[in-house]
């Protein structure tokens, strides 16, 4: 039977040597959370509220946005901050609902791999994106491709 420490039990001091990763994780969730509110609320406003909203999103819309390095970096910042924030939050949940052991390790490995693979994939997609791929029908491309 696991005993739960009483409220007001004196704090267990963190190890004095080395980096306290749990502390930095705690700080990361708060700092990235505040930044993500700005990044994601703007993302949602621009993509869902302006103009015809979700109905206007297609290849040409994305090509038009990513023609500007501003939106490339905006979306890459969202990608990194949100995936690490989400994966770390999921890690907290795994810690809460599983006992230490193989299953817990596998779940955390899966979270790490999902975040790492998607961060690499997403970053490559944003920076190697070609808005005017050769041979594609002109009516599907951003208007500047014709020029």
């Amino acid at each position: 039977m696991t005993t739960i420490e009483a409220p007001r039990t004196p704090v267990r001091p963190a190890p004095k040597r080395g980096v306290n990763l749990e502390k930095w994780g705690w700080i990361y969730m708060r700092v990235s959370g505040v930044v993500l509110i700005v990044l994601i609320f703007t993302h949602l406003f621009v993509n869902l509220m302006l103009g015809d909203g979700v109905k206007a999103i297609d290849f040409g819309f994305v090509g038009g946005k990513w023609a500007d390095p501003f939106w490339q970096w905006w979306d890459v910042a969202m990608l990194w901050l949100a995936l690490i924030h989400g994966a770390n939050g999921m890690r907290t949940i795994v810690n809460d609902y599983t006992k230490p052991g193989t299953a817990q390790k596998l779940l955390k490995l899966a979270l790490f791999l999902a975040a790492a693979v998607l961060i690499v994939l997403g970053t490559l997609v944003v920076f190697t994106f070609d808005p005017c791929p050769a041979g594609a029908p002109a009516d599907l491309l951003p208007s500047f491709c014709a020029a």
Binding site: L83, G89, T128, F129, P133, P137
Partner: peptide, 23 residues
């Protein structure tokens, strides 16, 4: 939100496949 994010990155990555696939 986490699970939506996983899907959303994959669907957006289709811009690198072809305009038709993304659309």
């Amino acid at each position: 939100i986490f699970f939506f994010l996983l899907v959303h990155i994959l669907d957006t990555a289709l811009v690198r496949v072809s305009p038709e696939a993304y659309n």
